Deep mutational scan, measured.
Amino acid sequence: NQASVVANQLIPISTHLTLVMMRSEVVTPVGIPAEDIPRLVSMQVNRAVPLGTTLMPDMVKGYA
């Protein structure tokens, strides 16, 4: 099972991601792979992401 990136807190819209905001967890459905966490740092979310939500490629500007 592959770990995905999950929000560690509420991430407001247009926030630049930091390591503190993300954790890796095995979830269904599978989202952005956990090994991409370093790549996600300083990218922006294009919507509010609630605590515990799996980050999907379409939620992060410039990821997909």
Results as ranks from 00 to 15, higher is better:
1 N>G: 15
2 Q>F: 13
2 Q>Y: 14
3 A>D: 10
3 A>M: 09
3 A>H: 08
3 A>Y: 10
3 A>E: 13
3 A>I: 07
3 A>V: 07
3 A>N: 08
4 S>E: 01
4 S>D: 02
5 V>T: 07
5 V>I: 12
5 V>Y: 01
5 V>H: 01
5 V>A: 12
5 V>M: 01
5 V>D: 01
5 V>Q: 01
6 V>G: 00
7 A>Y: 02
7 A>N: 01
7 A>W: 01
7 A>V: 06
7 A>C: 04
7 A>F: 01
7 A>Q: 01
7 A>S: 12
8 N>L: 04
9 Q>I: 11
9 Q>N: 06
10 L>I: 11
10 L>N: 15
11 I>F: 01
11 I>K: 00
11 I>L: 08
11 I>G: 00
11 I>D: 01
11 I>H: 02
12 P>M: 05
12 P>L: 06
12 P>D: 11
12 P>A: 08
13 I>K: 10
13 I>Q: 13
13 I>A: 14
13 I>L: 12
13 I>G: 09
13 I>D: 10
14 S>V: 04
15 T>P: 02
15 T>W: 07
15 T>I: 07
15 T>N: 04
16 H>T: 14
16 H>W: 08
16 H>Q: 12
16 H>Y: 10
17 L>C: 03
17 L>Q: 00
17 L>H: 01
17 L>K: 00
17 L>G: 01
17 L>W: 00
18 T>I: 05
18 T>E: 12
18 T>N: 05
18 T>C: 05
18 T>L: 09
18 T>R: 07
19 L>R: 13
20 V>C: 13
20 V>H: 15
21 M>N: 09
22 M>L: 14
22 M>R: 00
22 M>W: 03
23 R>H: 05
23 R>M: 06
23 R>N: 06
23 R>Q: 04
23 R>C: 05
23 R>I: 08
23 R>E: 04
24 S>M: 08
24 S>F: 06
24 S>D: 07
24 S>K: 09
24 S>R: 06
24 S>E: 14
24 S>L: 05
24 S>T: 14
24 S>P: 13
25 E>W: 06
25 E>H: 06
25 E>A: 12
25 E>S: 09
26 V>I: 14
26 V>W: 07
26 V>K: 06
27 V>M: 07
27 V>K: 09
27 V>S: 05
27 V>A: 08
27 V>W: 03
28 T>E: 15
28 T>F: 11
28 T>G: 06
29 P>C: 08
29 P>R: 04
29 P>M: 05
30 V>N: 11
30 V>T: 14
31 G>V: 03
31 G>Q: 01
31 G>R: 02
32 I>S: 02
32 I>F: 02
32 I>C: 05
32 I>Y: 01
32 I>G: 02
32 I>V: 08
33 P>M: 07
33 P>I: 12
33 P>T: 08
33 P>D: 06
34 A>H: 06
34 A>W: 06
34 A>G: 15
35 E>W: 09
36 D>L: 09
36 D>R: 08
36 D>T: 07
36 D>H: 13
36 D>G: 05
36 D>F: 11
36 D>K: 09
37 I>F: 01
37 I>Y: 03
37 I>Q: 05
37 I>D: 00
38 P>Y: 13
38 P>D: 13
38 P>S: 12
38 P>G: 12
38 P>T: 12
38 P>A: 11
39 R>W: 09
39 R>L: 11
39 R>M: 10
39 R>A: 14
40 L>W: 03
40 L>Y: 01
40 L>A: 00
40 L>E: 00
40 L>S: 00
40 L>F: 00
40 L>H: 00
41 V>C: 05
42 S>V: 04
42 S>L: 07
42 S>T: 11
43 M>I: 04
43 M>K: 10
44 Q>G: 03
44 Q>S: 12
44 Q>F: 06
45 V>T: 10
46 N>Y: 09
46 N>Q: 12
46 N>V: 15
46 N>F: 05
47 R>L: 09
47 R>T: 11
47 R>H: 08
47 R>M: 13
47 R>I: 11
47 R>D: 07
48 A>C: 15
48 A>L: 14
48 A>W: 09
48 A>R: 09
49 V>C: 07
49 V>A: 04
49 V>L: 08
49 V>M: 05
50 P>A: 12
50 P>C: 07
50 P>W: 05
50 P>H: 08
51 L>E: 15
52 G>M: 04
52 G>F: 05
52 G>W: 04
52 G>K: 00
53 T>A: 14
54 T>F: 02
54 T>W: 00
54 T>E: 02
55 L>K: 01
55 L>P: 01
55 L>E: 02
55 L>R: 00
55 L>Q: 00
55 L>S: 01
55 L>C: 02
56 M>I: 10
56 M>Y: 10
57 P>F: 06
57 P>R: 07
57 P>G: 07
57 P>T: 05
58 D>F: 08
58 D>H: 09
58 D>R: 07
58 D>G: 12
59 M>Y: 13
59 M>K: 01
59 M>E: 01
59 M>N: 05
59 M>C: 06
60 V>A: 02
60 V>G: 01
61 K>I: 14
61 K>M: 14
61 K>W: 12
61 K>V: 15
62 G>S: 10
62 G>D: 14
62 G>E: 09
63 Y>M: 05
63 Y>K: 03
63 Y>R: 04
63 Y>H: 04
63 Y>Q: 03
64 A>W: 05
64 A>T: 15
64 A>M: 15
64 A>I: 13
